[in-house]
Design a protein around this nucleic acid. Structure first.
Lengths: 196, 196
DNA sequence: ACGACGCTAGACGGATCTGTCTAAATAAGC
DNA sequence: GCTTATTTAGACAGATCCGTCTAGCGTCGT
């Protein structure tokens, strides 16, 4: 067993970190194995010792992205108790994401853009989307008014819109626009700001 | 001079057509020159006779996409005279786009996802986005109520959201969701359905 | 009839990319 | 201390990909 607090991170971890940086910033197809191992400061053999191949590395890259993002969103939501506030919190988390100077859009949208129909990327994107939908459907159900399914659909659309606009225009304020629109929708669905 | 109504289309046209199909459906990086000429039924020399290189072909591919889409949207808008109806028409055109069985998202979003910062794709995407923004800003200005800039921002976000959701979920109904939300926003901005 | 233009077929070079393999050094566990 | 797991450096094979080049065929304008 490797000690949990060892001085240098394991080769696998460094590879995954390097892959995360490069794949996200430059695209999966664009970045070759050699770039990854060079940045990780690792021998090529180490990569094929820890991963079955590039596809396997890509899968891990996307799985980790999914996990990290789900954590962050869940944390943002759970800071609030009211259904309305919990919904709006998602767009605030998006705002903090967009504010990062190296933001380059949703890893899963980007992966889908360069993915073949049955590729690893496509499958990872499908699971990610399922998560997005259950997330908003649960949040929409909690408000207890109107049609949750339709509300969730609209919230997803605002989520996707914020992500896409922020990427295409390098416009972090898209998160606020989405939030404002979500508020308007909730108002019209009869969910007031604070239950008195 | 070649006669304008010749039996077979010119090599350049066939190449551009093949590139359009392949680049859009499978991604620009994924598709090689050899695939393009094979599908076009053309010799490799013809490609480099008509185009300076792959980048040049990519540029033409994106420029054509831009032109075709702008035509289609403008036609949809110009079928109406009232500012509100002209705005909503955009989302209806999106609906017809999403309904196409081979819809695979916005060519410019996909290109951006796999593009390097200063690439041909990035530049084409920038011009495309400028067009999108002036489109909605003009439409928003025509309603003459509230802040056109803020209205335009929201409409762009709904546009992007519809496009992204439709692609990721293969959900053509995203166009209707976006349209419904746009109506709600216009109502709240004091733009009624029909000026009485 | 002749020359310019558009196009063909395919070989070729050089670069790059994924993955394998060898041989040996280092670290960890028992 | 001995064994097993992890890691290294780099050569190598096979595929693919972009672009060039040669040699030649057909068509059209003049």
């Amino acid at each position: 067993m490797t000690r949990p607090e060892q001085r240098r991170r394991t080769a696998k971890q460094r590879i995954l970190q390097a892959a995360d940086d490069l794949f996200y910033n430059e695209g999966i197809h664009t970045v070759g194995i050699d770039r990854v191992i060079a940045r990780a400061g690792v021998a090529k053999g180490s990569l094929y010792y820890s991963f079955a191949g590039k596809d396997d590395l890509v899968r891990d890259y996307l799985t980790h992205r999914h996990g990290k993002w789900a954590e962050r969103v869940t944390a943002g939501i759970d800071a609030h108790t009211e259904p309305r506030a919990r919904i709006l919190a998602v767009y605030d988390v998006l705002g903090t994401l967009f504010a990062q100077p190296d933001y380059r859009g949703c890893a899963f949208m980007n992966a889908t853009a360069e993915a073949a129909p049955d590729s690893v990327e496509a499958h990872a994107a499908t699971t990610f989307r399922a998560w997005v939908h259950t997330l908003f459907l649960d949040l929409a159900t909690d408000v207890g008014t109107g049609d949750p399914k339709q509300l969730a659909e609209t919230l997803v659309l605002l989520y996707d819109g914020a992500v896409a606009t922020a990427q295409m225009d390098k416009a972090p304020e898209a998160a606020r626009t989405a939030r404002r629109t979500a508020e308007l929708i909730l108002d019209n669905a009869g969910i007031p700001s604070a239950s008195a």
